[in-house]
Nucleic acid binder design. Structure first.
Lengths: 346, 346
DNA sequence: GCGAAATGCGTGAGCGCTAACATCGCTCGG
DNA sequence: CCGAGCGATGTTAGCGCTCACGCATTTCGC
């Protein structure tokens, strides 16, 4: 039984059930035009042989597409990881399969290189376009197969509405909210430890975290300090933020994500600055660990999993327009105040 | 240009190059028996049409398999996530595609349900068998297609050598080392906050973390306290560990992973116990954040990414025995002493 | 009660590719 | 100078499936 016995095909089932292969196909695909008695016979044969349709053959033959490829640059980041989970869940429930291909942030991928990652031309694809490699992949697919791609990234409601292949949340708005909160607490200004941007420059998109932060400061007539750029890793963040935390004039830092915030917390501790007494820290994403640091991180909750699901549904609609066009339906980002934020010392 | 134009097939290339489709196939697959001039003509035609072979058709036609499916129950756990990254990297370098299917720990999957996740019979599969759903999936595939599967999990060197489809590290040995370290520090005994086991019972495998811990305590003639079972999430860990940290008799806790350790750290803080003064805490996995908690976590480093790569290579060997059988070649787990461990107060 | 539509099923072609064999022309030993 | 031998190519037959038909039977409107 454990030997590599060849799997049953549609023909085997047809023979056993005494019908044509096409009838088996009809039963498998739930066509209504099959007599109940025939259907039962076929079903029985299927069960007996343990027949399972071969997905590859199915899509080769021009049947419905049943796979998505996810392009992302970093699976260890909480956002993409959670979005991937959302995509996988949604896909699973429809029996689609999910492939994943990781873009290396170190190489500059050529267009051909990106296209070569897709198992075939026209493969439905979701791109995590929150960073440079992602943005590049987005552009390539937009040029080659715009009808079979969806990109996830930080965009304003207007941008989202304008581009039917875009899914995401308005990080800028959320960052603005967080910044406003810190200002209301009485901080003179708020500094920013920034994640790498997708465009390579700050303020590249209105929905970027750094942009929302800067906007609020400007509107409030405050000084807008130079944002401190950090890489994605905690180690990079730690190095980048050290000068900032040791400056006593800095009383509040908005961090691009919770990992950066953790590094900031650590750096503040080592610099002998108490949090939130001397320094308020606000993170981003509400990563699971953020509630359990000491002190617990004030952060911005983001429902990436729902965004991932939304991306999948949108993609499905784009690939097969007979499915409903989903409306964005995830919660807005929301500030969660915990222990790392408070009023500045007078 | 942006319209859904059909992609070029092998026939289109053949026509343009003035050869048969088989010759194109030979060129694409690097067969040596093609005249240089012909090869160049074909290559030129390929470039002109932007032809890319269709993976689906290729494997349908019985060509080499070029895809792996990874079955895992939790992509947010550091171990599986890192192993997946290793698999993806190794696969990418050979142009294999990687699919992922997440097992829901909540349902009991039927055998058929697990098999239905594979895109076709005989699909090469890697299973993350560190928990109950993973173990079950492992068993199902072992029964149905043992030649095209590899499982990753905690196993001793002997177990690994005995099962040619197994890859992993000896967590028990690493846990033993960590426990010994705590004992040498002078702790009377060491408590254990345990991750869920793959078998549902403690001590189910010699290479389990809880097993290594218990073994050392027994060997040292110490009392072996009842291990405290926790779920995988930080929140569950926090609830589970509270009674433990508030017991002043407890001076050292070995945690099943760094997330549990973080929860323990938090619980200790809230219970007013200083770390490592009143309580030593040791984690597991050397999750990136672990160096940046305050105090920084003492933990056990594990190179999951290498294990993932090893799993992929082993799978490739099993599917196609003409490829070399890889030898396990990853670093042993290693204790990293940071700030959460120290001698007990006298 | 007769034509038209609906139903139930089968046939043939083809998706893009590879494996296996067939064919052609050339070189080379004797 | 002829056939064995080989290298370079073409031909054929699928892989497992779906589409687009085709052809009987039934069902139904009026």
């Amino acid at each position: 039984m454990a030997q590599p016995k060849k799997a049953a095909s549609i023909w085997d089932v047809a023979r056993l059930a005494g019908v044509s292969h096409q009838t088996v196909s009809r039963v498998v695909n739930g066509s209504p035009r099959v007599a109940a008695a025939t259907r039962d016979k076929v079903l029985e044969a299927i069960a007996e042989l343990g027949y399972r349709p071969n997905r590859l053959a199915r899509s080769l033959a021009g049947g419905a597409v049943e796979s998505v490829t996810v392009l992302t640059a970093d699976t260890s980041l909480y956002g993409p990881e959670a979005a991937l989970r959302g995509i996988e869940k949604a896909a699973r429930s429809l029996e689609w399969s999910v492939s994943i291909s990781v873009l290396d942030p170190a190489d500059t991928h050529s267009d051909a290189d990106i296209i070569a990652r897709l198992p075939r031309a026209g493969e439905p694809t979701i791109i995590m376009a929150h960073d440079e490699p992602g943005m590049r992949a987005k552009q390539v697919l937009l040029d080659t197969q715009p009808h079979a791609m969806v990109a996830i990234g930080p965009y304003t409601a207007d941008e989202l509405a304008a581009s039917p292949w875009l899914v995401g949340m308005d990080d800028g708005k959320a960052a603005a909210e967080a910044t406003r909160y810190l200002l209301e607490l009485g901080h003179e200004t708020v500094h920013h430890l920034a994640i790498p941007t997708s465009t390579g420059t700050f303020g590249g998109g209105k929905a970027h975290r750094a942009d929302g932060w800067a906007r609020v400061l400007r509107e409030a007539g405050r000084e807008v300090p130079e944002p401190v750029p950090s890489g994605w890793t905690i180690t990079e963040a730690f190095k980048a933020v050290r000068p900032l935390v040791s400056d006593p004039a800095v009383t509040a830092i908005l961090c691009g994500n919770d990992h950066l915030a953790l590094a900031t917390l650590r750096a503040a501790h080592l610099a002998g600055r108490s949090v939130p007494g001397d320094l308020s820290i606000v993170g981003f994403d509400n990563t699971p660990f953020s509630a359990f640091t000491t002190p617990a991180l004030t952060t911005v909750n983001q429902d990436f999993e729902s965004v991932g699901r939304g991306a999948f549904e949108l993609l499905r609609h784009r690939v097969d327009s007979s499915t409903p066009r989903p409306r964005p339906s995830w919660p807005e980002p929301e500030l969660i105040v915990r222990e790392t934020s408070g009023p500045p010392r007078p």
